[in-house]
Computed example of a mutant assay.
Amino acid sequence: MRVVTSGSAYLDIDAYACCIAYAELLNHLGIDARAVSSAPLNVSISRTVLGWQSSLDDYRPRAGDEFVLVDVSDYHHFDPLVVLEQVVEVIDHHPGFENHWAQKLGPAADILPIGAAATLIFQRWEAAELLPLISETSAALLATAILDNTLNFTGQLTTHSDIRAYEILAERAKLEADWPERYFSECQATVESDLIGALAVDVKRLKAESNLPQVFAQLAVWDASALIRTHRATMGHWLAAQGEDWLLNVISIRECKSYFLAEPLVSQQKLSHLLSIEWQAAMAVLEPALLRKELLKLGLAAPAL
């Protein structure tokens, strides 16, 4: 059995879509596969998405199973069900572990700077000449993951491949033209219904070599300014309890802006080392928006403070 899985902290729409759609493709190719995860789902998997006819498989890995990792390549953060020595493929778009997996897996390590890992899974379907067989649900999941991870195609890592993949998948899935606004608005409603829960499942703890704050939370919503006006104090108090070096990136899809919140001076200095931004009352606004993975790429390439 080939187990398609992702990270340990949480499952976002990109990881969720990739697990399900790639397991489906492998089964079409005659390889027994299951989409499996022990991680909690985060707010990017909206109410409508949860209502689609798709789900992870109820399967417990057995001795001898092989593992495919999607949307993650940092082996420190693999789902705990993964047996490292039995990883046979890694498909990801996050920087930092390209050389490690290239040495271990050769061409079975597909780690590329692209807007969404879902685009890489789409390309696998296309290369196998099986795209006409993809289920509407998997097409919708991959399309939505591309929307989310490219910030509705405004993110700096967005490529023509992402845009093309979305257009083909959205048509296959029969997604309506207003789906992007509906999707991101649903995500915002979910965030506001359980703000602390949303932060808790989308926070990452980074190492010193990232040149970024150690505690880095991110939320992508339709209207970030409205969210911050209402909930800034709550978010700040919770993040301050997580450590003395923290940053929150609230991405506003409607405005194509990032709202950075960081009360610790050391956290502000780290971000100012990477970006030309101005802090006012512990908040800085950047246009266009930047994703955490884009900031991580900048941080890893920057000289240490």
Rank of each mutant, 00 (worst) to 15 (best):
H77V: 10
Y166R: 11
L206M: 09
A116E: 10
L239T: 04
V3I: 14
P180T: 03
D74C: 08
Y259S: 06
A226N: 10
P80E: 10
G106L: 09
A165H: 04
A226F: 14
G115E: 06
P40W: 10
G51I: 07
A208I: 14
E176V: 15
F184I: 03
P303K: 10
R292V: 09
V82G: 08
A226R: 15
S210W: 14
A284M: 03
T230Q: 13
S6C: 07
V285C: 11
D245G: 03
A170D: 01
F216Y: 15
Q214H: 15
A241C: 01
L84E: 14
A262Q: 10
T159P: 06
P61D: 07
D57C: 07
I91S: 03
N149V: 04
S44E: 10
L50Y: 04
I251K: 04
L41D: 02
L271G: 06
G51Q: 11
E192W: 02
A177E: 12
I31C: 12
Y10N: 10
T150G: 05
L248N: 00
Y10A: 14
S185Y: 01
S185T: 12
I31V: 13
A289C: 09
V72P: 03
L56T: 05
I146N: 10
H100P: 01
K207Y: 14
Y75H: 15
L199I: 13
L296I: 15
I146G: 09
L291N: 08
A240G: 13
H237W: 00
A217M: 08
A23R: 05
G7P: 00
I20V: 12
I196G: 00
S55G: 15
R182W: 04
Q86P: 04
A140Y: 01
A165Q: 01
H160G: 14
L175K: 02
A63G: 12
A23M: 08
A63L: 12
F122T: 00
A208E: 14
A284Y: 06
T150A: 04
D65L: 11
P61M: 11
G299I: 04
F153R: 05
S138W: 06
I163D: 01
L286S: 06
N211G: 04
S135C: 06
D148G: 07
A282D: 15
L296G: 07
G115K: 09
L248R: 02
D245P: 02
V72R: 06
P213V: 11
